[in-house]
Design a protein around this nucleic acid. Structure first.
Lengths: 141, 141
DNA sequence: TATAAATTGTAGTATGGGCTACACTTTGAC
DNA sequence: GTCAAAGTGTAGCCCATACTACAATTTATA
């Protein structure tokens, strides 16, 4: 979610909100797919749908978007894989998620709520804020 | 944010994501309208659109949604007003926004980034987390 | 008071997330 | 090897956000 499309391009039809929102979904998918690939060796639409609580049709459509965005590859009936770019995104997302949860917990938020809220919060944390979070945790030991 | 629609009703066609997203937009509008009413005495679609960086057509459509949700009233060419419910929402949102910004700043996030990020983060902060934030700030003086 | 400028409203279109229903592969059990 | 179950894909629909383009009203100015 670091950079918005350039002014002149298709930005016009991409309000900040919509952009942030649709980016958040892609981030969630990338992270989950990386997780499934690591733990199960494969990422299938049905598993993804189940984990995200959406219908498999919705998952498949979003996977198509991941492909269009150059984040994933997939061939019919053969599961989903991440491109290098997709893996990089998943890694960034995972690190950020951990950081947000840790900060919330450090602030006294119960683990369960911290995990739940981080899910929504993480997509809106800028690089600057992320750095501050890391620094805060480091100082705090 | 606080509560999702009941299972049996129209919930079915209101994914978690969509619900959170559309609620966030209504919250932003309510807050902004309250702000405009307080500072300028009136809240006009064009002002709202300008402040939110969307077209006036988009603002007008969302204002219609606010009306449907019982949060605002508006008559053609006569500006927008908040209902009691709308004011209550705006108040809650304002308090929450302040709290989130203050916590970010306390964590060492520069003011500008804190304000910007809070805009996105605040809609995902649960009551539990909010309480923890307040407590944290109190202890910290 | 006319008339131009600004504001407001409406229509039509695109994208995105979500769903159900139905069709088509693969897989697995006999 | 057949056939049913599971998984996968497609089509069609809804609603929300957003936009541009055009129409209508209000306001401000000549």
């Amino acid at each position: 979610m670091e950079k918005l499309p350039a002014e002149g391009t298709q930005a016009r039809r991409f309000g900040k909100t919509r952009f942030a929102q649709s980016t958040a979904v892609l981030e969630d998918y990338a992270e989950l797919i990386a997780d499934l690939l690591a733990s199960a060796g494969e990422a299938r639409p049905t598993d993804i749908a189940r984990r995200l609580g959406v219908s498999h049709a919705t998952a498949i459509k979003t996977i198509a978007r991941l492909k269009r965005a150059g984040l994933a590859t997939a061939r019919p009936y053969r599961g989903v894989f991440l491109t290098e770019k997709g893996h990089a995104l998943a890694d960034r997302v995972r690190v950020r998620h951990r950081l947000v949860v840790d900060v919330l917990r450090a602030l006294g938020v119960p683990s369960e709520a911290a995990e739940a809220d981080a899910e929504g919060i993480e997509h809106h944390v800028s690089e600057i804020t992320l750095k501050a979070f890391a620094q805060f945790l480091k100082l705090r030991g």
